[in-house]
């Protein structure tokens, strides 16, 4: 099977810091890959490179058969990659529905004049955008659908994270990159998130890469776990393989933490 995302020898350096160092990384269609590593290991930097926010010093990146090195984030969104952010970046002054609708803008292209003159084509496109936005909101049940006219800033924190995922879904992506989706969630919300991530794949066919500090979440959802430290990939494999890897335990959890955390 050819990989959906295939990254080889990726490196980036910020001044004296080798933030990512020769990382090989891949994700297959329909796979859920967990990325773990201590703070500063280079996880988010890796995301930023893959999604085009940074351009790497070295390395090749193939996504869905396209060479994506040097492409801008919006081009990558068009190719079918969508992401969320560690610090949620919604359009706070816009409604829940509008946030999800903006996600569809990459798939539609009514011009300015069409939008102003309200041609029937624009109108039906606008209807389609709204319909698709409602569809992705409905994935999260009533929490978002029931509040589609609320401002994004008025949502509870966990719902803001959900809305960000919904907006990413609305871009009609194949691959979702989720940066710490469980951050700030309580145990019940995390359980909900785990089942939603599972459904994103099983019902909607997304491939998912997620960065997460929360080990139970990683354990529950990941087919494969990649561990980074100091910008390098230490190991990868199933959760059980990675979580018993000596290097990972030392780097990520600390020697003494082995029993209590795993």
């Amino acid at each position: 099977m050819s990989h959906l995302l295939d990254v080889k020898g990726l490196s980036i350096r910020f001044g004296g810091v080798q933030a990512v160092n020769k990382v090989d990384f891949h994700a297959d269609p329909g796979e859920i890959v967990g990325v773990i590593g201590p703070n500063g290991a280079g996880k988010t930097t890796l995301f930023n490179i893959i999604t085009g926010f940074y351009s790497p010093d070295e390395g090749t990146m193939i996504f869905d058969g396209h060479n994506i090195s040097g492409l801008k984030p919006n081009a990558l969104t068009r190719l079918g990659m969508a992401r969320t952010f560690q610090s949620v970046r919604l359009f706070n002054a816009m409604t829940v529905l509008e946030n999800a609708m903006v996600g569809q803008h990459t798939r539609t292209k009514a011009g300015v004049w069409g939008a102003l003159t309200r041609s029937s084509k624009t109108k039906s496109e606008e209807d389609r955008i709204r319909e698709r936005a409602r569809e992705v909101l409905a994935f999260f049940g009533d929490r978002l659908s029931g509040r589609e006219d609320a401002l994004a800033s008025d949502l509870a924190y966990a719902d803001r994270r959900r809305l960000e995922i919904a907006r990413a879904m609305a871009t009609d992506a194949k691959l979702l990159l989720l940066d710490e989706p469980a951050a700030g969630m309580n145990p019940a919300e995390k359980d909900g998130l785990i089942s939603q991530i599972g459904r994103l794949r099983s019902e909607l066919g997304y491939s998912i890469i997620l960065i997460e500090h929360d080990m139970p979440v990683i354990k529950s959802v990941s087919d494969r776990v990649v561990a980074l430290d100091h910008g390098e990939k230490i190991t990868e494999g199933t959760y059980d393989e990675v979580s018993t890897n000596k290097q990972v335990i030392e780097a990520y959890l600390g020697k003494a933490a082995e029993e209590s955390h795993l």
Partner: peptide
């Protein structure tokens, strides 16, 4: 509100 994200979303 957020030029970078707007661009990311195809604006």
């Amino acid at each position: 509100e957020d030029r970078e994200i707007a661009a990311l979303m195809g604006v």
